[in-house]
Design a protein around this nucleic acid. Structure first.
Lengths: 219, 219
DNA sequence: CCTGCTACCTGATGT
DNA sequence: TACATCAGGTAGCAG
């Protein structure tokens, strides 16, 4: 028996869907190729999506850092750049760590979203490849089917404004989160993001929760 | 019954040969290995030849572009560089296209020449592997035995000074060619070189003709 | 030594 | 048909 599940795919492809939450702007998603999760340590961003949603020109020379939050509030910074030789946009530095932590495999889907009320804030999530091919041995804590927010978890979304200063004032910062009508604290986990990045903090912060066990969903 | 044929090999190895035309400086030639025509997309330049005739250090870091003309006036640009890992000089980018167009196979010979009166101008040609192993099915227009100039075609050589400006003034440039005492026009084919390169044009241009059918040879 | 990353390169594929 | 794209490669360098 599954929770709503419904794979965010459906919603991303159908922005008119009634369950669509217009605070969440789906940018795009990509089914991962073997190369995207292999030793090349890069994710190719399809050109149409890159030019529509990502910074123009890939930062042109030298590329630029793009920062995303994942389903557990962790920040991920990736180098985003344009490869002249292959005429393609890629995420490089940092990407392999994400693949490793999320245990992504070919066929899994990564997705990018933006939260409308905080327009500059970007989020990254993932979906296991369609249940059909499910042969996940379930190694160390990696049995989730998704790591996403908003549309991926239509019943599990919350956001509160960011309290300016909190990040810098406190070594162990927490943010307030309203979840199912209950205020919850969430640790920001600046201590060990695989790609540490404690500097860039926008002046506003909306906050989301992703991975949650089924038991919590039905508690 | 063969035309002079005689493979340029002979002349290249014997600069004192009476047929040697001292306007053509043979640099070197190399019988192609399976790797040279395979998927590695590179031609290894024997170190002694590389260091004697090609730019020093392979351009050191980053390599450099070397530009050659073939028997049909087409310009070929190859990336020339030194691979520290294998301590060898190689032509890389562009090479596979040349192999494909000329239908080169292992055992065939590629040769490099320079035209003395225009010292910077380099030429590349080829010879089919010795006639013994001739089993060329003769796919689409690929039945020639050589693609070279000067020595390779001792009776079929001509050159005229280049008219400066012609290339830039005219969308469909032609050069004058004196062949068997007759002036001929030759299209420069800037429209579709596999490695397009319409910029670098030296101030002088000597011009040659390569591939010609036997019937024309004996006309 | 090995690993990750940058910046190249190319063939296959789809349009 | 040519062209654009991208999946799958490479070399070289830094750590």
């Amino acid at each position: 028996m599954e929770p709503i599940q419904s794979s965010s795919h459906f919603y991303l492809e159908n922005p008119q869907n009634p369950v669509f939450d217009d605070e969440w702007e789906p940018l795009f998603q990509k089914p991962l190729t073997p190369s995207d999760v292999g030793k090349l340590n890069r994710l190719v961003i399809p050109k149409n999506h890159a030019e529509k949603y990502f910074p123009l020109g890939g930062g042109d020379s030298g590329g630029l850092l793009m920062s995303f939050e994942d389903e557990s509030c962790k920040r991920w910074s990736f180098r985003y750049s344009y490869w002249n030789s292959s005429q393609s946009y890629v995420l490089t530095k940092g990407w392999s760590r994400y693949v490793k932590e999320k245990k992504l495999h070919a066929g899994d889907i990564v997705l990018f979203q933006r939260h409308r009320p905080d327009f500059g804030r970007l989020f990254i999530g993932w979906n296991r490849r369609s249940a059909a091919a499910e042969e996940d041995g379930g190694s160390a804590g990696g049995n989730e089917r998704w790591g996403t927010w908003g549309l991926g978890h239509p019943y599990l979304e919350a956001h509160v404004p960011y309290q300016p200063g909190c990040l810098h004032a406190d070594g162990n910062p927490k943010r307030l989160l309203r979840l199912f009508g209950v205020d919850v604290e969430c640790q920001l986990d600046v201590s060990e993001p695989s790609t540490p990045e404690s500097s860039s903090v926008s002046s506003q912060c909306y906050f989301i929760v992703g991975i949650i066990t089924d038991s919590l969903l039905y508690a």
